[in-house]
């Protein structure tokens, strides 16, 4: 209710004007910019690193298990003698992909539900938004846990379970934005000019709500990566021998007394990446959403 009231007072700016000088303004927010650069570097390292460090993450070597760092293994080896550096890279790829894909489905589900509810209004609005609120008010981690225990833990399943349990925030954001833009003058004008509803939605409303979707999805990636590591801790994440930072962390738990470094590396990696996504998301929100702009 509040959002509607706010929306009415604001004058829509064209998205072009907003993205103008985007990077220059991003650079002004030093924290967000540092986070952005860090993420670029991490993605390059994780996805292109294996081209340079081409040791197989699956090659076992029981005789040299749990070795410390050396030129051959800069981060040492794990419990069955696999190279930790190459596993960090391979695991990072999966973790970042899971984060990205979960975010994609989260935005897809949340976006469709929120936009439909906001745009069509009436009983569709009532049903969809009541459903969203209901989903927000149940401890859906419990459901996710049961689902993963009984349905198996393929990467796709993990991604879908994360998406199905975290789309509600985005639905609410998109809902609010859609209401705001729907009532703006030029959308009203285009409807009165006889434009079909889907077309209006796609051509006029969707572009306007993209900034908030970008913010939400940046924060969504952070959330998804954290969720993946949490369900991995319970043994319900993506299953080994496929490496992810989450399951490397889980596997390292039993070596906490003898080789704590095995648990520290993936833990630090997850924290840094999630931190960077969160800072970037906050920075983007300051940039894109005038409501949050610091004065």
């Amino acid at each position: 209710m509040n959002q509607v009231a706010e929306a009415k007072q604001e004058i829509p700016a064209s998205p072009k004007a907003r993205s103008n000088g985007f990077f220059r303004r991003l650079a002004k927010n030093r924290m967000a910019f540092a986070a952005f650069l860090f993420l670029v570097v991490i993605h390059i390292v994780v996805f292109l690193g294996p081209l340079i460090w081409n040791v197989s993450p699956e090659k076992v070597d029981p005789i040299n298990a749990l070795a410390g760092w050396s030129l051959e293994h800069p981060m040492g080896t794990d419990d069955v003698g696999r190279d930790v550096l190459s596993r960090m890279l391979a695991g990072g790829q999966i973790t970042l992909l899971v984060g990205f894909c979960s975010m994609f489905f989260t935005v897809l589900i949340g976006g469709i539900i929120g936009a439909a509810a906001g745009y069509f209004g009436g009983w569709i609005d009532t049903i969809l938004m009541r459903f969203t609120e209901a989903m927000m008010s149940i401890p859906n981690f419990f459901l996710a846990l049961v689902a993963l225990t009984v349905l198996g833990k393929s990467p796709m399943m993990v991604i879908l379970v994360i998406a199905f349990t975290s789309w509600m925030e985005i639905a609410r954001v998109v809902y609010g934005e859609t209401l705001k833009w729907k009532e703006s003058e030029f959308v009203e004008a285009s409807i009165s000019m006889g434009s079909k509803s889907m077309r209006t939605l796609r051509k006029h409303v969707v572009p306007q709500i993209i900034p908030s979707i970008i913010v939400s999805s940046t924060l969504g990636i952070a959330w998804a990566i954290l969720s993946e590591s949490a369900i991995s801790y319970l043994g319900l994440g993506i299953q080994p021998p496929t490496a992810t930072w989450g399951n490397m962390l889980q596997g390292a738990q039993q070596y906490i007394w003898t080789s704590p470094i095995l648990g520290i590396l993936p833990g630090v990696a997850i924290t840094l990446v999630v931190l960077a996504y969160n800072f970037l998301g906050d920075g983007l929100r300051d940039l894109l959403d005038p409501k949050y702009q610091k004065k």
Binding site: A230, G246, L249, I270, V274, F279
Partner: peptide
């Protein structure tokens, strides 16, 4: 932001 970013079980361990 740090609080929101650290995997809680890892921090716990």
């Amino acid at each position: 932001v740090i609080g929101l970013s650290v995997p809680s079980f890892w921090l716990a361990i």
